[in-house]
Amino acid sequence: MIADEMRERLQALQPTRLEVLDESEQHQGHSGWREGGQTHFRVRIAAPTLGDLSRVERHRLIHRTLGDIVPRIHALAIEASD
């Protein structure tokens, strides 16, 4: 499952809190939705490594950490803190 892959990769940021939520069912019928879900995700992460980064830099780091997962999904909401 994509959510499991995301959790595994995000461990590299040594989070103190991590939630990966599949919100696909909330978007049924919307653009990018497909049967079986795994299209719309929300990541809530707190990690000291994010502390000195701007919001944009945090998002870029998370996208880089997720790597090839990002093109496989339609939407990713990120709530990041240190």
Rank of each mutant, 00 (worst) to 15 (best):
H40G: 10
A75D: 10
H40V: 06
I78S: 05
R42I: 12
P71C: 02
V43F: 01
F41C: 10
L21S: 10
R72S: 11
D52C: 10
H40Q: 11
R42Y: 09
V70W: 01
S24R: 06
R7H: 08
G51M: 05
I62Y: 04
V56I: 14
I45F: 05
L18K: 02
I69D: 05
L76S: 07
V20K: 03
G51I: 02
A47Y: 01
H74F: 10
V43Y: 04
E5S: 12
D82H: 14
L50R: 00
H30L: 11
T16D: 12
M1A: 15
H40I: 09
H27F: 13
I62H: 01
A75C: 11
R64M: 11
R42G: 06
H63K: 11
R34H: 12
D4P: 02
A3M: 07
T39C: 13
R42S: 14
T39G: 07
I62R: 03
E8F: 08
A47I: 00
E19V: 10
R60N: 09
S54P: 10
G32Q: 07
T49R: 13
S54E: 08
P15H: 08
M1F: 08
L18A: 04
E35R: 15
I78L: 14
L10N: 06
R72G: 04
L53A: 03
V70L: 08
R60L: 12
G51Q: 10
I73N: 00
S24H: 11
Q11K: 11
T65L: 00
R72W: 02
P15E: 15
R44P: 02
A75Y: 03
E57G: 13
G36S: 13
A77N: 12
V70T: 13
R60W: 09
D22H: 08
R55T: 15
E19R: 14
L76H: 05
T65C: 00
I78M: 08
T65D: 02
E23M: 14
S31L: 13
F41Q: 11
A75W: 01
R60Y: 09
L50F: 02
V56A: 14
L53C: 01
I45N: 03
A47W: 03
T65S: 04
I2N: 10
M1L: 11
V56K: 10
L66D: 03
E57Q: 15
E5I: 14
V56H: 04
M6G: 09
E57P: 12
A80D: 03
E57H: 12
Q11M: 12
L61R: 09
R9N: 07
W33N: 06
E57N: 13
S54T: 15
S24M: 10
E25M: 05
I45A: 06
G29M: 06
R44D: 01
E23F: 07
R64Y: 07
A47D: 09
A3S: 15
S24D: 09
V20Q: 00
L13C: 05
Q26F: 05
R7D: 01
G37E: 08
G37C: 04
M1R: 14
H74D: 04
A47P: 04
E79S: 04
H40T: 07
P71R: 05
I69R: 00
A77G: 09
R55M: 11
R9Y: 06
L50A: 00
L13R: 02
Q14M: 13
P15D: 14
A46G: 08
L18I: 03
R34I: 08
L13K: 04
H59N: 08
E8I: 09
Q28T: 06
